[in-house]
Design a protein around this nucleic acid. Sequence first.
RNA 1: GCCGAUGUAGCUCAACCGGCAGAGCACUGGUUUUGUAAACCAGGGGUUGUGGGUUCGAGUCCCACCGUCGGCUCCA
Length: 630
Amino acid sequence: MAVENKRPLAKDALAFAQMRGEAADDVVAAVVDGQLKDWRDPIPEGASVRLVHLNDPEALQVLRHTAAHLLAQAALRLFPGTKLGTGPATQEGFYYDMAFETPLTQADLPALEAEMQHIVTERLPIDRREVSREEALELFAQQPFKCEIISGLPEGARITVYTQGGFTDLCAGPHVQHTGQVGALRLLSLAGAYWRGKAGNPMLTRVYGTAFADETALARHLEMTEEAKRRDHRVLGRELKLFTFVDEAPGMPIFLPNGMALRNTLESFWREEHRLAGYQEIRTPMMMNRSLWERSGHWDHYKDNMYFTDVEGVPYAVKPMNCPGAILAYQSESHSYRDLPLRYAELGLVHRFELSGTLHGLLRVRAFTQDDAHLFVTPDQMEAELARVLELVDHIYRVFGFPYRVELSTRPQDAMGSEELWERAEAALKQVLEERAVPYTLNPGEGAFYGPKIDFHIQDALGRFWQCGTVQLDFQMPEKFAIEYIGEDNQPHRPIVIHRAIFGSIERFIAILTEQYVGAFPLWLAPVQVKVLPIASAHEAYARHVAQYFVEHGLRAVADLRDGKIGQKIRQAELEKVPYMAVVGNKELDSQSVAVRKRGVGDVGPQPYRAFTEELLDEIRRQRQRREAK
RNA sequence: GCCGAUGUAGCUCAACCGGCAGAGCACUGGUUUUGUAAACCAGGGGUUGUGGGUUCGAGUCCCACCGUCGGCUCCA
């Protein structure tokens, strides 16, 4: 039943539009003093107002929120007895979490979508009403999840319900004027989701969909989703033979020669940058006696994510982190304050047990290599050293051209150590960020168990953010292991440890690189940099000679000596996304040259192969040292 | 781990209501000697993820386990 407003609202956005002599039909919300408001909200005297029309960007979230209500309404029409959870709009569309009496399957989606379309054509007006808590509880007596939400609302909270046709939902809004304004919608997928996102709660069925003002915009969005699939690093990883996964080692990638070439390039670049930044490389054991992990606190705080084994009755743990090993390295000799800051870098392969459902290609694995480092510093050096780390992170990310986002994560629930030390550590990280004017967001309660951290999230080509770099302050490990240095006063002092990683995990970084470049890696990273393609078997020896010359001069080159036509060899090299092809036939043989073909461009003309080599080497140098002019 | 889906040749995918497991690409052999995105002919390749069950008969139906995919939770 439609609900009438007993008292007409003061002046709402529609009235406002009419007052200004504008069309009000397609007004779906208003931005009042910078905040998105329901069009039904009264507009206070003197506020700054911008009307949001159906085709404005802000309208999308309003329209999608309404689409979620359409979904709930359709579900109740088709499956009475369905219990409703919540149904918000998202970046990409909307979803609604519901508990169905019989499990919903993919096959039910078309009928559900058709019912939604039907409601759109009904053009049902959407009315809002404010209700008391008692009234709300009565209204949703059949909806236990809604009752839970209502009961959880703070005293005196404004409770609103929206009604369209016979369907009423508890909702804070905003919503469009009538269901006909949801111009184009599509149900996409089904998933399970814990009620209120808590693992102990019942699992609801989440139906995902998306909605737009019109079909054209929807079609464009679906096309972009298709495009996104082409960039998936798992697909590209197989096509380009970078890595593979086997059932025998879930979540543990096998790096194939191409992936290994890419990886080695990243690692040698990383080693060089760290050498210049004053780091020394170490390597620590893959597994160590369990007692070490008991001492470090990992046993208490990280046991569920670790792998264990027994050798001759001695319990061992496979390392999930590199820090204890680095501490042992530090302890191998006594240190003076003159040694500090001491920077131990380690490309450390760690194993972490992750729940099976969370694995995702190279982005989420159970075995990965952290480009780790542990910096041992005096309290005085802490801030300068943190600043140096931020600079190195920035420097390395610039080479890849990634924009990144910074988050400061603070004390978690199961934190180790005193509150006072935590506060000091958090203050130090905050200060360094603020001094350098790095924009960051606060992530309360998300720190590591031994200290707060600054995380670097890199956006992939599809706009998703992944945590890569991390800088963590640790006052705990030095205490646990009682490490020290001799100060100027000839007395022992406790150093502070800074843990940090820049790629984060080489595996994850490679996944992001792959998606970023759609597999077409820049020359310096490409697994095969140049492929020599002989026209006919008569040019085989020359092709081999040229390829060998490339290899001897530091290029990753191969010759395609198969019996086949040049067109076929080119096609294959293009599909393999090899940056350069060097075609050799009679002309090239006579002039000691190669006919250069550039990936994605085509034939760019002949060149003496020696000069071509120099050009490639130069291009590689430039790419590897790319700096943004400051 | 949880919810749902799914698993056929190295890859992408066929195989009706339960009735002889197939194609393209890739691979191997041969023919061909080729000039900028796919030459031609032939051949090999499978205990249909694993283990049970139903049935005269299972890729197909049922159960369990494993992997994968989409999410949730978690995280580099």
